[in-house]
């Protein structure tokens, strides 16, 4: 039987940082759990940590968090799906967020969204079939003076037109044709220039 663990490997002392699951990212979650003494009201903080570590909240992660906090599964799932910040599906390699705050809206940000949707054949909130690009809209990135604003892999593009925005996205995808993901701090959440990539994503009804 090949799956049997040898006594030797079991005896090997585990490094202090190693998590029983074998995935060190779980240690990050554990740290947050401990910081909040496993209190149930820390659920949202723990989900934040989990998503930062893993990029998205898989079922396994939700089960782990639910068990650690002794919360019902449906409770955790209900919370994770209530907030726009949490995503239960993997995101595309590249991420383009169009701000749809009032100032951007007044300056015709909707046309930029329409242009991107047309070009990549997805609706805002979706990822292209090849997993290359996620397009989403945000409530307000608070850069109203620069409207209309979009954020491409953490880089803020200000005062764009539909044409110029499309050009920037095309160029960006071409530059990263190798598929390498731009650097992030933790998977999924980019903090360059202070705008988080998952900020206020919403899905259209």
């Amino acid at each position: 039987m090949s799956v049997k663990t040898s006594p030797q490997s079991r005896a090997r002392p585990r490094a202090a940082t190693e998590h029983p699951s074998g995935d060190p990212r779980f240690s990050l979650i554990d740290r947050t759990l401990k910081r909040f003494s496993f209190q149930q009201d820390a659920l949202i903080e723990v989900l934040h940590t989990a998503q930062e570590a893993f990029g998205f909240l898989s079922d396994d992660l939700l089960i782990y968090v639910a068990h650690q906090l002794k919360l019902p599964l449906s409770w955790v799932y209900g919370v994770a799906t209530f907030y726009h910040f949490f995503t239960l599906t993997p995101q595309g390699q590249h991420n383009c967020i169009v701000c749809m705050g009032t100032a951007c809206y007044v300056k015709r940000a909707a046309e930029i969204v329409a242009a991107l949707q047309q070009e990549y054949q997805i609706t805002a909130g979706e990822t292209t079939a090849d997993g290359r690009l996620s397009v989403s809209t945000a409530r307000c990135l608070g850069s109203c003076g620069l409207a209309p604003v979009l954020v491409l892999d953490g880089e803020v593009l200000a005062r764009e037109t539909p044409e110029s925005a499309l050009e920037r996205v095309r160029q960006h995808l071409a530059e990263h044709a190798g598929g390498a993901k731009p650097e992030t701090n933790g998977a999924g959440v980019r903090e360059r220039n202070g705008i988080e990539s998952n900020g206020g994503i919403h899905e259209p009804i």
């Binding site: 079922d59 019902p72 599964l73 449906s74 799932y77 209530f82």
Partner: peptide, 17 residues
């Protein structure tokens, strides 16, 4: 049971949906 999602997209769910 619990409720997932929000607004008009809310659904009652069982465990992890």
């Amino acid at each position: 049971w619990d409720v997932m999602g929000r607004g008009v997209n809310s659904r009652v769910i069982i465990d992890l949906n």
